[in-house]
Computed example of a mutant assay.
Amino acid sequence: MRSQSSSVQQARQGLADRLREIRLGAGLTGARLAALAGWHRTKISKIEYVVISPSADDIRAWCNHCGQPELIPDLVATLNAVEGMFVEWRRLERTGLRVVQDSMTPLWERTRTFRIYSSFVVPGPVQTRSYTVAVLRALAARRRIPDDIEAATRVREERQRFLHEGDHRFAIVLEESVLRNAIGGVETMTGQLGHLLAVSSLPSISLGIVPQNADRSATWPIESFWMYDEKQVGVELVSGYLTITQPTEISMYAGMFAEQTAVAVYGAAARSLISEALAAFDNTMR
């Protein structure tokens, strides 16, 4: 499955345009380059019109036959970057969950303002240990990946230090339904909601809840996403992880976050919604 994100498409088109420039600069027709490389005659046009993506070997052959082998390292690096914008979970998590969690730490370190919208689960920075274990256990089972849940959980817990150190700021907006999704069972949810009440008072956190009865005429629940300053957006899709870096598309997500913020409640009103959800879970335990 290929993402239709404009960031990904724009990056692929940029690589294809560069390859076309190299071919034209070498004075080769598409048919001639295909013949030199031993490819089907339509392969050149499919690459240049982004019907298919070139492989690293394709780029090497392309540059060698066009007399510019010195361009190979940069173009292969570009290809790797483009392919990394959308990565399937089975590729990311082939050795388990811990490696993926570790890979996010440098991004957290250099980010100052996190904007997080979640329509499904309580996000990692404000999760309890038992809630994290429940989430990761479900992911591991669904995606049939190696069980390194304890190691991955430790990485997530360690990353929560950013709530308390440096000048990191977390603006979090949750749908009210997130408070009532019984992830990990009733006991886990009571602990999680109590924790959410506690951390909502931290100076590094701004917590908004979109009430279930809010007027959603102008905006509605969408896929969860994370914004890292104004530099990139991360979206967890069913099939993989999407990284968005195209400025106009980042602006779209910033606008969407602002819309969700506008219908969310904060402070005492948000704590009241959390307390109501907590009371509902408490009642089921009696």
Rank of each mutant, 00 (worst) to 15 (best):
V100S: 14
R159W: 02
L19I: 08
D147M: 07
L71D: 11
S200I: 04
S55K: 05
D58S: 02
R110G: 09
E276H: 11
I52N: 08
V210W: 05
T219Y: 09
F170C: 04
H168D: 06
T29H: 10
A269R: 15
L174D: 05
E223L: 15
L75E: 02
M1L: 11
L92M: 14
R110A: 11
E230P: 02
E165K: 05
L107Q: 05
L196I: 08
L136F: 15
R144G: 13
T128C: 06
P211S: 04
G25I: 02
R20N: 13
T245A: 11
Q13K: 15
R18P: 00
E187L: 12
L207D: 09
D74V: 06
R110S: 14
G30S: 02
Y241M: 12
Q9S: 09
V199Y: 05
R216M: 15
E83C: 04
I149E: 06
D167H: 12
S130V: 12
S6W: 06
I116R: 00
V8N: 00
V99T: 14
T219N: 06
T190W: 01
I116Q: 01
T243R: 14
V155N: 06
S7L: 04
R110C: 11
G38I: 01
L28Y: 05
S3H: 07
T42V: 04
Y117K: 00
V235R: 11
F170K: 01
A152P: 08
W108H: 14
H40T: 07
A268N: 11
T105F: 10
